[in-house]
Design a protein around this nucleic acid. Sequence first.
DNA 1: CTACCATCCTGGTTGC
DNA 2: TGCAACCAGGATGGTA
Length: 280
Amino acid sequence: MPELPEVETVCRELEKVALGRSVEKARAHSMKIRIAVPENLNRKLKNRKIVKIARRAKYILIHLDNAHILVIHLGMSGRIRIEAEGQKTLVKHDHLTLSLSDKTDIVFNDPRRFGLIAYLPEKEMIKHNLFAHLGPEPLSKTFNAKYLMENLTKRKTPVKIAIMDQELVVGVGNIYASEALFEAGILPHTLSCNVTTGQAARLVEAIRSVLKKAIKAGGSTLRDYRRTNGDLGYFQHQFSVYDREGKACGKCSCKPALTGGVQKITQGGRSTFYCPRKQI
DNA sequence: CTACCATCCTGGTTGC
DNA sequence: TGCAACCAGGATGGTA
């Protein structure tokens, strides 16, 4: 679910309430998510101060004052909500509650259980399984036209599959892949090795700009995603092609009834949306 | 190396 | 109204 903009939004909101606070109590309500919740989490986290909240790819990193990190991944359906302690009772699929020193609760809820919680030393993060194979952050300088071109040239897979590969670039999921390709005017089934230098440059800028706009809008809510206070993101109202099959794309003034509008295809088992008139 | 598929799991929507 | 099929923002591992 949550792609980079959604995770970034959650991180920023977490930072506001959690930075500088201590964990008073950690309660795991269920151990069974994609990777089992670490044992004895309360013992590990109790009285630890939260010194930094960061994001790497789609992972939320809660840095503690013992040089360890609590890692949370939202998977497809994970949510984090922030509420006054004891404000509400637990709801279905709550997996972890962190009670902070100022009586704030941070609750991780994940119906499909594709998310994960990990606890690891900061020193081990880079070489850890979860992080070792991640590509550059799309909003960093290392993700540029030259880098993208070099890496697309090596690949025969459709460009849409390539930009969703977290080893090439992190944070781009199914929604923003379609949106970025539209923005760049590139057909999603174009083979990576056939992408031109000019297209690669446009694609880098498109990925950046789409992600930044989505962050500004607090992410996109299609079904599960919510901000930490329960509000919806609203970037979905700015989609040009995603989830708009048969409708006019963001730039078309043509009549969908005549042209067929936005097309939907399946790539790698996932839906892709594009406009055959604005993408070549 | 790539392409393709299944898998983890639940819940909402669609279609008969 | 009931029920089954299908679909969903992610990531991984297996197989051909």
